[in-house]
Computed example of a mutant assay.
Amino acid sequence: MKNIITLLLIGLMIFLVACGDEEQESNNGEESNHEGHSDTQEDEDESLIPVIVEILVDDEIETGEQTLQARVTHNEEPIAEAEEVMFEVWEKDHKDDSDMVEATYTEDGIYEITYNFEEEGTYEMYAHVTAKSQHVMPKHVFEVNAN
């Protein structure tokens, strides 16, 4: 019985030593400053910087065709190639009747749609933006008045 326990302990020690050698080999060529973090990593991971979406719609607009815009930036730089920018527009308390419209890039991080407001009232909108592996959807509430 002692022989079996001794063999198991020796086998376990060999296994642990072998695993330690593999970890050291996997860090070959990189200086490690502490537990798995290497000096070759970038100082700041770009995916941790939030995408900022600013809706550029006045609080009061007129009925008829209106241009709705949003500016999309990342790290204070305009994003010209967002994966997706959709504007969702609805009259307040009628979200089930919302319209989803794909926005078009213009310049300087600005995306826009043209939307026809046929009736006065309070409207709400989301700017659904997917960029830099993030999905951001700020909401804006505004009034539509007769012109």
Rank of each mutant, 00 (worst) to 15 (best):
S98N: 13
S133I: 03
K92F: 14
V53K: 02
T122S: 07
E25F: 10
V89C: 09
A127P: 01
E119H: 02
E112Y: 08
A80S: 05
E65N: 04
G121H: 00
Y111A: 07
M13S: 13
N145V: 14
K139N: 15
E81Y: 06
Q134S: 06
E143L: 12
D39W: 14
E35Q: 12
T106F: 09
C19L: 14
I113R: 13
E60I: 07
K95L: 13
N27Q: 02
E119R: 15
Y123L: 01
W90Y: 14
T130H: 08
D39N: 02
V72T: 09
T122Q: 12
T67I: 13
A103Y: 03
K132N: 13
G121D: 02
H140Y: 12
L9S: 04
A146E: 15
A70R: 07
W90C: 15
P138G: 05
A127Y: 11
N145G: 14
V89K: 12
V141F: 02
A131N: 02
L12C: 06
E25P: 10
Q69G: 04
D108I: 10
D108W: 03
T130I: 13
E25L: 10
E124P: 03
T40Q: 12
G29W: 02
E31R: 10
V101F: 11
V136W: 01
G121P: 00
L16K: 11
Q24G: 07
H140M: 14
G36F: 03
N116W: 05
D39F: 01
Q69D: 05
E65F: 08
E54C: 15
T67C: 15
E77I: 09
Q41G: 11
A127F: 03
V72E: 13
D108S: 09
V17D: 00
Q41W: 13
N147F: 02
D96P: 04
E22R: 03
E35P: 08
F142Y: 15
D39P: 08
I61E: 01
Y105H: 01
G11A: 12
T63V: 06
E118F: 02
G29H: 01
V136I: 08
E22N: 06
Y123F: 01
M86I: 06
D21Q: 08
H94Y: 15
L8M: 01
M86E: 10
V89N: 03
K92G: 10
S133Y: 11
I4T: 04
E118T: 15
E102I: 04
N116K: 15
E112P: 13
K92I: 11
E23W: 09
K139H: 13
E88D: 09
T104R: 05
D108N: 12
E77P: 04
E77T: 06
S98G: 05
L7V: 10
N147E: 15
L68I: 12
H128G: 09
M137D: 05
K139W: 07
N145A: 09
V51Q: 07
K92A: 15
P138H: 08
M125R: 00
T106A: 04
D43V: 07
M86C: 10
A70E: 07
G29T: 02
